[in-house]
Amino acid sequence: MQLAARLPHRNGMMTMIRLYEPRYDEAEVVRLIRTELIPLSHSVHQLDAQTIRELPKRFRSGVTYVAAMSKKSAPISFIHFEVMGEVLYLDMMVTHPDHRNRQWGKKLMAHSEAYGKSQQCKIARLFVDQINDKAHKLYNKLGYYTVQYYPELRCYELLKPLTPL
């Protein structure tokens, strides 16, 4: 699937949402996970070498979109997801702190949900860490509702129908 949507950026420059390209994106995506996502997780430590080593394999098993200034520039935001039967499983999403509050999460979620619909997914599913209130609020605004809390993981499970009920 070819994807490269050019979008205006606040400073007038164009930004694009494109498919993840490991040779250009892997180092920055791993850094974003390590510095922005893992610190929010109860079950993973920032220095967990095994988790970091497994990330390239994890990215090969699904689809990843990145927001970047060009085809070869480092990502400023990304989302990773997989289709499992009729479920779009949203795995990870991070935006660089310098680029937050610019709708990148919303745009990446919309692209992911469109992909899920094109694959006949009926529902989108994700987990959000208990302490990540901003993400939880974003997902609620985008139509996701909380179905369960997992105390052992300190995270919530959220769902959103992708087809009319």
Results as ranks from 00 to 15, higher is better:
residue 19 L to M: 15
residue 19 L to W: 12
residue 20 Y to N: 05
residue 21 E to C: 15
residue 22 P to V: 04
residue 23 R to I: 06
residue 23 R to Y: 06
residue 24 Y to T: 02
residue 24 Y to V: 01
residue 24 Y to P: 01
residue 28 E to T: 00
residue 30 V to K: 00
residue 32 L to D: 03
residue 32 L to M: 15
residue 32 L to W: 01
residue 34 R to C: 11
residue 34 R to W: 08
residue 35 T to F: 05
residue 37 L to V: 15
residue 37 L to E: 13
residue 39 P to S: 02
residue 42 H to N: 11
residue 45 H to F: 08
residue 46 Q to Y: 10
residue 46 Q to M: 14
residue 47 L to P: 00
residue 48 D to E: 12
residue 48 D to P: 09
residue 49 A to Y: 12
residue 49 A to H: 13
residue 51 T to V: 11
residue 51 T to M: 13
residue 51 T to A: 13
residue 52 I to T: 05
residue 52 I to R: 09
residue 53 R to S: 13
residue 54 E to F: 05
residue 58 R to K: 07
residue 59 F to G: 03
residue 59 F to S: 03
residue 62 G to K: 05
residue 64 T to N: 07
residue 65 Y to E: 08
residue 66 V to K: 00
residue 67 A to E: 01
residue 68 A to I: 01
residue 68 A to M: 02
residue 69 M to K: 04
residue 70 S to K: 05
residue 71 K to M: 14
residue 71 K to R: 13
residue 72 K to F: 06
residue 73 S to F: 00
residue 73 S to N: 04
residue 75 P to T: 02
residue 75 P to A: 01
residue 76 I to L: 06
residue 77 S to T: 03
residue 78 F to Q: 04
residue 79 I to N: 02
residue 81 F to T: 03
residue 82 E to I: 04
residue 84 M to P: 04
residue 84 M to Y: 09
residue 85 G to T: 11
residue 85 G to W: 08
residue 86 E to S: 08
residue 87 V to W: 07
residue 89 Y to D: 05
residue 89 Y to W: 10
residue 90 L to R: 07
residue 91 D to P: 04
residue 91 D to R: 10
residue 93 M to Y: 06
residue 96 H to C: 12
residue 98 D to W: 02
residue 102 R to I: 01
residue 102 R to Q: 10
residue 102 R to H: 09
residue 102 R to C: 07
residue 105 G to T: 04
residue 107 K to V: 00
residue 108 L to Y: 01
residue 109 M to V: 12
residue 109 M to K: 04
residue 110 A to E: 05
residue 111 H to V: 10
residue 111 H to W: 02
residue 112 S to D: 05
residue 112 S to T: 13
residue 113 E to F: 05
residue 113 E to L: 07
residue 116 G to Y: 10
residue 117 K to A: 10
residue 117 K to Y: 06
residue 118 S to A: 15
residue 119 Q to T: 07
residue 119 Q to Y: 07
residue 121 C to E: 09
residue 122 K to I: 14
residue 122 K to R: 14
residue 124 A to F: 07
residue 124 A to C: 11
residue 124 A to R: 08
residue 125 R to D: 14
residue 126 L to P: 07
residue 126 L to D: 06
residue 126 L to N: 07
residue 127 F to K: 14
residue 130 Q to H: 02
residue 131 I to T: 05
residue 131 I to W: 00
residue 132 N to M: 13
residue 133 D to G: 02
residue 133 D to S: 06
residue 134 K to C: 08
residue 134 K to M: 09
residue 135 A to K: 06
residue 135 A to H: 06
residue 136 H to K: 12
residue 138 L to W: 04
residue 139 Y to F: 15
residue 139 Y to S: 14
residue 143 G to K: 11
residue 143 G to R: 09
residue 145 Y to G: 14
residue 145 Y to K: 11
residue 145 Y to E: 14
residue 147 V to T: 15
